[in-house]
Design a binder for these strands. Structure first.
Lengths: 227, 227
DNA sequence: TCAAACAAGATAGTATTACTATTGTACGCG
DNA sequence: CGCGTACAATAGTAATACTATCTTGTTTGA
């Protein structure tokens, strides 16, 4: 048993994959496979072969691969929120809290021994390349009603809260927070695949620090604007 | 024949759809269908039924539906660039040029009689909901090598150019430009489907003006930052 | 004017995907 | 002992994303 585990929305899975051997295997191996193959080429059939189980068995945990993806992405956002929560303990200054949040958002992700079953580095790549696909669908409204996007929304609210603490007059706290959260990942994708869209470079060592620097400029200067 | 037509990359289509009746129909009707069904539910078979042609005939114009989507999105970015080019005629001040670009980027899109075959309003909705899918794939690097993303990159470069005219010291011109271009559409998507992520509201009349206002705050304050 | 070239319709076929349904079995618990 | 749970095994289906081939009708240019 784990020391810590996140409680994800009930609607995400048919049965809690953290509770059984097979469930944990599904989560663990699907991260590796989606990272390697990309979400479109990833199928339950291939996953079943890899974990030496059957398609039907996987379907008992996740309604379809879309829900599984949302499950993984949600886990990621909860993890980040947990890290930020932890990071701002005993810090009173809202500016400092926001700075810490940005740093954690942008920093390179490494294995977290608290969650031995999750390959956070692979999951991070999945978030960068696939997370938008969770909501860019025709069923977004139904999925949202079921609370499937709480992970992202919750962290956005937290960051927007820091922003409003700094300047309660600022009228676009949530817009700025969501824009920054998206940009944090998009810029890394661009750096790797469409480098002419960004100043970040995949080859530079401090890419993640540079990304945090960019986000800080964008956020802090926007907050204290005379509107 | 049209007065004006954009020259899109050769690699986007197997044969130029602007040249034939069938080609124009494919483009025209695919816009309506993707807007209505969403990209995943849209198929060449359904399109063929609608235009009373055959799947095989459509495949003679576009290798697959992914390329067709890129074709449409590219058309959109070229159209925006053309509108901005037109809008900044005889304007010398870089600040003003950037302001115009932001306004055009964020404003509500209406039918452009210059291009009678294209339903710009539907295409705009497609860009908002589907454009990220053009590059969030495992073949992004090959597609990029073929020059399929020139439309987006070109406009990004243009906007980054305005930014650097205003402040040549600013080190994240392209990052800021790409972030703003993405945010411009994302915020509208959020306003409609995930309203807790934005201050914009689908119901407010001046949503697009508000969006432009948000982007201006973000961009102009970032540019003149002391780094 | 005749033939070659091309556009596009008609038809058929394939591998894969995303499921659903049913049955059988091994294990643990009261 | 009997019951439920977990899961394997197998089969089947509709739809998708193509590919291939053959035919017809139209244009064109020598």
């Amino acid at each position: 048993m784990n020391v810590l585990q996140f409680v994800l929305s009930e609607n995400l899975s048919l049965r809690d994959p953290q509770e059984t051997e097979l469930g944990r295997k599904i989560v663990q191996e699907s991260i590796e496979m989606i990272d390697m193959l990309g979400f479109e080429c990833f199928t339950f059939k291939k996953l079943a072969q890899r974990i030496e189980s059957t398609e039907a068995s996987i379907y008992r945990y996740f309604e379809n691969k879309h829900k599984l993806l949302i499950y993984l992405i949600t886990w990621y956002w909860q993890w980040l929120e947990y890290k930020i929560d932890y990071g701002i303990q005993n810090i009173a200054s809202p500016k400092q809290k926001l700075e810490i949040a940005i740093r954690i958002l942008a920093e390179r992700k490494e294995k977290d021994p608290t969650f031995p079953e999750i390959n956070e580095e692979a999951l991070y790549r999945i978030v960068i390349a696939e997370s938008d696909k969770t909501y860019l669908t025709k069923q977004v409204d139904e999925d949202n009603k079921e609370g499937l996007f709480r992970g992202f929304k919750s962290l956005c609210k937290m960051i927007a809260g820091f922003i409003r603490e700094i300047n309660p007059e600022f009228e676009f706290a949530h817009s700025l927070a969501s824009t920054a959260m998206q940009a944090a990942h998009q810029q890394l994708f661009f750096a790797r695949h469409l480098p002419s869209l960004t100043e970040l470079s995949d080859s530079q060592q401090d890419m993640h620090a540079q990304n945090a620097h960019f986000l800080k400029i964008m956020i802090f200067n926007s907050i204290n604007s005379a509107t």
